[in-house]
Design a protein around this nucleic acid. Structure first.
Lengths: 223, 223, 223, 223
DNA sequence: GATGAATGAGGATTCATTCAT
DNA sequence: CATGAATGAATCCTCATTCAT
C-alpha cells in the first residue's frame, strides 16, 4: 500500500488547499472501497467518501463524474492486471501439482483475500445486479482468468497422474468455492470467526485428498 | 384501472379482497424477499413491494411499521423453524455417514438453495452490516444449528471409522462453504452458470473422498 | 380565470393534508408560469413554485416528473387550443378588413397580451434555446396559426381592394411585430411605461393607413 | 494541450500571451456576450466564458469580481457611447424626413441589429428583472436617447408638413417596435426565418405611408 | 381496514468563487 | 499576473412515512 493511503495525515499536510492532484483519485478510490464494502453502495454517502479521503464533496466530483462512475472506478482500479503476472508464475512451476494448488490458494489469500481487493469481490457479489458492466468486468478480469488458471493446474495434475480422472469443469469449483466463501464470510459481520489461514490449509488438505488418485469413497448406497 | 380502484366495488372485487385478507402479510413478505434479493435493501422501494403484493403502499405500513421491520420480518418469516424437524431426521438415520453428508447437502439444496429461502442467505451476507440483529438471528437460526448438525455428522463418521481423524471445527466448513457459495453464485448476476445439482454432487464426491480414511495426499514439500 | 387560481385560500382549506387532486396541477401550472416569467426558468426554485401553489416540494413532483417537464406543461397548458375557435370567428366576419385587423389586434391583446398567456410568449422568447421542443410547440400552436390568420385577413383586404398590393409575407409582420413587442415591453421591468390599449390603437391606426390603397409615400431618394 | 499549459513556456507562447494581455478583458466581454445571449445568464457557466476567451476561470475573476459584475460590464462595454455621434449625424441631415426615418432604421440595423450589440437588447429584455441596474442603464443609454432621436425626427416631419398630426408619444413606438421585434425574433431559436433587410424595408414602407399626410383609413365602424 | 395524496428530510450534483502555487 | 485544484452553498429530486378519507 502506498503511503498516500494513510488516513492520519502527517504534518506536511497542514494546508487546506493543498495541491496533490496525483494522489487524490487514489485516496478517494481507497476510501470509497472501504465504505462501499462496509455499508453498501446505496448506503454510502459521497460526502463520507470525500471526508474519509480528506477532501470536500466537490473535489470528489472533480475526479469522478458521478457516484456510479466512482463505483466502477473502484472496481477497475483494484482489479487491473490482477492476473497478469500471476499466470506466468505457474508456467515455470516445477513442483507437485498439489503444491501448485496449495500455492495458488495461499497466494489468492495473500494477494486478494487478505487485502482490500477482497472487498471488491464482496462488492461485486453484493451490487452486481445494479451494475451489470461491473459484474461483466469482474468476470472477465477475475473469474475467467482464475478459472482458466485453475483448470490448467487441475489438468496438469490429471495429465501427470497425480489426480484421478475428474470432471474438471466442476472440480474447478472445489477450489473456487472456498476462496469466494471465505471472503464473503469474513466480510459478513455477525458470522462466527474463522481463521483464514487455518481455513485455507484445512480446505486445501481435504480437497487435495479428494482430488487424488486413491480408492473411491463409499459409493452412494441408494438414491 | 383495476376494479379495486373503483369507489363502488363490485361484489367480486370485494370478495377477492376479503378472501385475500388473511394472506396479505405473507404476500408482502414474499414480494419483499424477491425484491430485496433482486435489488438489495436500499434499492428496493416499498411501493414496489406493495405493488407486487397487489396492495397499496399504505397497506404495507399497516402490517409493518417500517421498511426495516419489513426486512427483519422477511428474514424471520422465511427462517422460522428451518432446522426444527431437520435435526430429527438425522437422529434416526441408519446408513453410512457418507450418505448422511450427501443427504444433508441435497436436502439443503432442495429445501433452501432451490427455494426462496436461499434469498435470505444472500440477503444476510449482503446486508448484515446494516442489520446486526438480522445477522444475529440468522446465525442463531441457521448457522449454529447447521454447524451443530454437520459437526454431529462428521463426528459420527470419525467415531465409526468412516472418516479419518479431522479437525472438525474446520472440516465443517468444507460442507458449509460450497453450500453458501452456490447460493451466492446463483444469485449473483453475471457469473458463469453452474448447474446446482451437478455442483452439489461433484462437491460431495470430492469432499467425501477428502474426508475418508485413505492414504494421505502428497504432503506439502516445503513451506 | 378559474377561481382555483386564487392565492389566498379561503377558510375551507384549513386542513394541511387536504385532498384536492383535481385542482393541484392547475394551481402549480399557474404558480410556475408566474415565477418563470418573473424570474426566468433557471432562477425559479421548484420549492417556490410549490409554496406559491400552497403545496410541498414533493407534491409538485407527484404531478410533474421534473422541473423541465413542469416548464413544458406550463407552456402547453396555457396554449392548448388558443387558436381553435379564434379562426372560426373570422370566417363569419362581415365588416371591413380594417375592422378585422383592429378586432384581431384587440382580441390578441385581450385574450393574450393582457392575460397570463402573454407570459408564455415572454417565456418562449426567453428560454427557447434551452427548450427547442417548447419553441417548436409554440411555433406550431401560436406563430403558425397566427401567421395564417393574419395572412388570410390581409389577403382579404387586398382581394377586396381595401389594401394596396402587398408583399404579404412581410406585411404580416407589421401586425405581429407590435403585438410581440408590447408583450416583451410590458414584461420587461425598467422600460418606460406604455399604455397597451393606446399603443394597440395607435399602431393599428398607423399600420392600417400604411396598408391602404392611397398615394405612395415620398419614395426613397437614393440607395 | 496548448503550449500555454506547458510549465516552461516557449518564446512564442510567452509572446502570444503578452501580446494579448491588454486585450483580455475585451475578449472576455465578447465571449460573455455571445454566451449570455445564446444560453441566458443563468445557464452560462463562467468557465465556458473563460474557455472561449482562451483564459482560465481564475483569470476571469481577476478582471471581473463576480459573474454579475461581468454581466453588467458586458452591457456597459457594448453600449457605451452608442448614441454619442449618432445624434450628431441627424443634426446635419438635409433630406426628407421619410429618408431620415429610413436612414435611422437602416443604421440601427447595421450598427445594432446586425452586430453583437443586438445581443445586449436581447439580454436586457431577458434578464432585466434580475438586474435592475442594467435595465436602468440600458434605458438611459439606449431607450431614452433613441426615443428622443425618433421624437425629433417625427416632430420634424410634422413641422415640415411631411407627416400628418400625430400623437408622437405613441407614434415613436411604430419605429421602435419593429426594431426591438426583429432583434428578439432573430435571436429566438425556432422562430420562422425573416430576412432582416427586407423586413426593415417593408416595415419602413408601411409605417411611412401610415405616418404621412394622406386620406385617413376606413374609420372604425363601431366599438 | 385500505387507500393514495401529501409531506419533508436526505442525498447527489453543480458551479461560482477562492487561493496556493 | 495566471492558473486550476479545491471548496461548499444551493438546488433538484427521491422515497419512507403519515394521515384524511
Amino acid at each position: 500500500m502506498s503511503p498516500a493511503v494513510t488516513h492520519t495525515p502527517s504534518d506536511e499536510s497542514r494546508h487546506k488547499r493543498e495541491r496533490r492532484k496525483e494522489a487524490r483519485p487514489g485516496e478517494l478510490l481507497v476510501a470509497a472501497l472501504d465504505l462501499f464494502v462496509e455499508k453498501g453502495f446505496a448506503a454510502t454517502r459521497v460526502e463520507e467518501v470525500a471526508q474519509r479521503a480528506g477532501v470536500s464533496k466537490g473535489t470528489l466530483f472533480l475526479y469522478f463524474p458521478s457516484k456510479v462512475e466512482l463505483f466502477k472506478a473502484v472496481v477497475q482500479h483494484h482489479l487491473s492486471g490482477l492476473f497478469r503476472e500471476w499466470n506466468a508464475e505457474f508456467d515455470t512451476f516445477t513442483g507437485s501439482t498439489a503444491d501448485m494448488v496449495r500455492y495458488c490458494m495461499n497466494q489468492w489469500w495473500e494477494r486478494v483475500g487478505a487485502t482490500q481487493v477482497s472487498g471488491i469481490t464482496k462488492l461485486v457479489m453484493t451490487e452486481a445486479h445494479q451494475f451489470p458492466e461491473v459484474a461483466h468486468f469482474y468476470r472477465e478480469e477475475v473469474i475467467e482468468p482464475g478459472n482458466a488458471l485453475i483448470r490448467r493446474i487441475l489438468q496438469r495434475g490429471v495429465d501427470r497422474g497425480e489426480f484421478r480422472e475428474l470432471d474438471i469443469g466442476y472440480a474447478i469449483y472445489s477450489i473456487i468455492a472456498p476462496m469466494i466463501f471465505i471472503i464473503m464470510w469474513k466480510t459478513t459481520s455477525g458470522m462466527p470467526n474463522v481463521d483464514p489461514s487455518a481455513f485455507v490449509a484445512s480446505q486445501a488438505d481435504i480437497i487435495l485428498r479428494g482430488l487424488q488418485a486413491c480408492p473411491p469413497p463409499t459409493p452412494p448406497s441408494h438414491t
